[in-house]
Design a protein around this nucleic acid. Structure first.
Length: 159
DNA sequence: GCCAACGTTGGC
DNA sequence: GCCAACGTTGGC
């Protein structure tokens, strides 16, 4: 029996990496590197699986919100940037034999014709109660999305 | 193991 | 640029 898919929301600052950047990548694939948070690392490791779907959320920008959909196309594996002294994400404390940080590969699925902005999500709080992004102080760059919330947001997005 | 100080995130 | 909220660090 096929394992059930999970749904996610992954944030990125569009100045750093946007949904359009993902769409322009070769094969529209990108390693989601640079995550340096243990909770997210554990979600990558324990919960996220190849085949899962994720919203692409733009944060720290004039109109924060969901701008697209992508697919998780790998299970978690060590993030090579942690071993690269030239990388912003270099972690001198991480050992090759015992990598501290993981990543997954993602692939572009679609860009939304009209983004579902954070404002809009808030307007639908009643139907989206429990959505992590709406909870005060949630700074995790990756959060799970319940199937019912996923469906509802897709409806808001017109997909 | 506690907790103060510091750094980061991210909306506004 | 402000600042609330949270995570991490490090002295004890």
């Amino acid at each position: 029996m096929p394992e059930k898919l999970s749904h996610w929301l992954m944030k990125s600052e569009p100045d750093t990496f946007s949904i359009d950047d993902l769409a322009r990548r070769p094969k529209q694939i990108e390693p989601w590197n640079g995550v340096r948070n243990y909770q997210v690392r554990n979600m990558f490791r324990d919960q996220m699986k190849r085949g899962d779907l994720s919203f692409f959320y733009h944060s720290s920008c004039p109109e924060p919100g969901i701008y697209g959909v992508m697919k998780i196309i790998s299970n978690a594996y060590p993030d090579p940037t942690q071993f690269d002294p030239k990388s912003d994400y270099y972690d001198a404390g991480s050992k090759q034999e015992e990598p501290r940080w993981l990543l997954v590969d993602v692939q572009f699925v679609q860009k939304l014709d009209k983004p579902v902005l954070l404002n809009t999500l808030r307007e639908h709080e009643a139907r989206l109660s429990g959505l992590r992004i709406l909870e005060k102080g949630t700074r995790l760059s990756v959060t799970p999305v319940q199937p019912a919330h996923w469906k509802y947001i897709c409806k808001l997005a017109g997909i």
